[in-house]
Design a binder for these strands. Structure first.
Lengths: 356, 356
DNA sequence: AGCAATAAAGTAAACGGTTAAGTAAAAAAT
DNA sequence: ATTTTTTACTTAACCGTTTACTTTATTGCT
């Protein structure tokens, strides 16, 4: 009942030529005459031939495949990065093998090993919250597999990185907050072991200090990058009756967690507690109030990462390590616009629905 | 500088045994003694061996790999389905090859061909908006590759499907709307060629008719499943000065588009225009007002799809086609709760941040 | 006309594994 | 003590391609 897949050999037999002739013809090799090539292509089309990629990759030793490892997928930030990566890959005739670590270092390691086993031509990775052991990355380097760290980068040398300028982004946001009159500012900082946590946190602290304000240690809470952490951190402060006037959250999900908690308690944003976060998402402008943020252009992160990786793949040993820093911009909506007073924001043009 | 990857042959040479012995030992084949097995495993560990999956899959003719094709990825619905699929695959020692069609039929077809070329063990697909030609799916069937259609299913027989009970979900929602007093109800219906569009639309129409209300054709607008369509459809009605009291949107992004337009115009939800949509997303409860919806359990969709596919893979020819229907539930928040009057909703327990 | 160059194929080997079919030595059965 | 079975390996063949090297016929050049 079920058709076996057509192979080069089937076509060769039918046409009474050798397998190699077919193989060459299908790849427009000059060895084969125009005529024969045309015939072979026609017949293999008719027979419904599709190459066995396992065999091809095995023998050709490159797979035209890129491995991507991310910590989470059902999140706007990674979702849109991934979407762009897929698009760029498609344009360049590469396939993507996507792995999701679920913020688990052990799983991340296994995924990378699998990618190596699959002989991907290169790897883009955004490391998990818990990744501490960088040994596996050394292995990747030793294998000569091009590697780009994206957004979350470890502190090791000799690797390509595409990171957001977390420090400056956070600094600018806090500076703005101070300018409109805030002094009691808290920070939900996530994991400060990772560059993004560290950079944002440092930007916060420096901005405060540079403006002569001391950071209240009770208001600088570490934890994670997800909603749960924002939710709990806020409840903790609330229960202690020790709320700042403004909270700067390390990610947008953390801010959502705060929204959730604030909603449940029955407080109002920004009157009772004001908020700003690092990271933009389409729907922030639809929150009530619309959430101001530091925008990190996900498409640019994805494009740059792919650009660097593809070039690294092309040049091989001749490629020189690149460290890319992506600029952020402050998007002000209805939070953090005036101390304890909400004013309508300018319409947020960037968030218009994207064209098809 | 760069290490070549270790192969079976390297290990065999070092230990003065044959390649086959190593291959068998690593897979705990009974042919090889406990002792030798242990030694071989130890040595290959030390040497950092990792199997070449291309080679393995080529000769073993199964890849332990599942292909997944979805139309979009940076959307909550697909994002969370994918996340769950990855988890289930991981637990079952399968790899996922994810392809994103971007709602493009041509691209979808190419992706499926690639998956066939990659010799995936099975395919899960949610077809694009525009897919009309089902020929490629026949090819998949003929090749004997297990196939599951998920959420968006075509009208062809003899295939596994996991679909949401769109009709009943829509029907119940409209019935509720009618019960609280709405009569002038519009529907942004997306593509009614696809099951999800068709089912939801039919549920809407039948519920209206069964309650003795005629559907106003001006208020039944077809288009797409994205924000842009919701945005534009709403503006169109607004400009024509022909707004219904309540709009039921085919997806959650369409509703977001409406929110966007409503915001920009300066109208209020639900006072000026009320809204309910098909599809749930974590952040809907944080919108203002919190958006009521028909919840489709993404995790269940993902789990069922994987369950059916894995069983189909296991049983092969003996497997009997399965058609799974997933129930929905109505989640009422702050929209569509009382005609032209917003009341606070019960707290939405399901949307508490998920535990780590 | 004679010989090198070129065009259009074909052959052999390799890619790194797996599976099936031997084989020699050791253990068990008669 | 001889045959049979089991144990522990090895050799050969194959998975479906590609690449490097030959072969054969044709063309071009002097």
């Amino acid at each position: 009942m079920k058709d076996k897949a057509i192979t080069l050999s089937d076509i060769a037999q039918k046409l009474n030529v050798s397998i190699v002739t077919v193989s060459k013809a299908l790849r427009d090799h000059p060895d084969i005459s125009k005529q024969t090539t045309k015939l072979i292509k026609k017949v293999s089309e008719e027979m419904g031939y599709s190459p066995n990629l396992m065999a091809r990759n095995l023998s050709a030793r490159n797979t035209n495949t890129i491995g991507v490892v991310i910590p989470k997928i059902a999140h706007f930030f990674f979702g849109s990065i991934i979407e762009k990566i897929y698009d760029v890959a498609f344009e360049n005739n590469y396939e993507i093998i996507l792995m999701v670590s679920q913020e688990n270092a052990e799983r991340e390691k296994r995924h990378i090993q699998t990618l190596l086993s699959m002989k991907v031509d290169g790897i883009i990775i955004s490391i998990s919250q818990e990744t501490k052991d960088y040994e596996i990355f050394e292995t990747v380097k030793r294998r000569g597999v091009p590697l780009v760290f994206m957004d979350r980068v470890p502190e090791i040398g000799g690797v390509n990185t595409v990171a957001v300028d977390d420090y400056t982004g956070a600094y600018k946001a806090i500076e703005h907050a101070l300018n409109i009159g805030y002094k009691n500012i808290g920070h939900f900082a996530g994991y400060t072991k990772i560059n993004i946590g560290y950079g944002r946190s440092k930007g916060f602290v420096d901005a405060m200090n540079d403006h002569g304000i001391e950071v209240n240690p009770d208001w600088l809470i570490e934890g994670g990058f997800g909603e749960k952490y924002g939710y709990e951190a806020f409840l903790k402060l609330y229960r202690e009756n020790n709320l700042p006037d403004l909270i700067f959250t390390v990610t947008y999900p953390v801010a959502l967690g705060v929204y959730q908690a604030v909603h449940e308690i029955g407080l109002r944003i920004p009157e009772d507690i004001d908020l700003i976060c690092f990271g933009n998402a389409k729907m922030q402008s639809l929150l009530s109030p619309a959430l101001s943020c530091i925008d990190q252009p996900t498409h640019m992160i994805a494009e740059k990462s792919m650009e660097i990786l593809l070039e690294n793949i092309r040049l091989g040993e001749d490629f020189e390590i690149k460290k890319e820093m992506i600029d952020t911009s402050l998007i002000l909506r209805e939070t953090c616009v005036a101390k304890n007073k909400s004013i309508p924001s300018e319409s947020d043009v960037q968030n218009l629905p994207a064209g098809k």
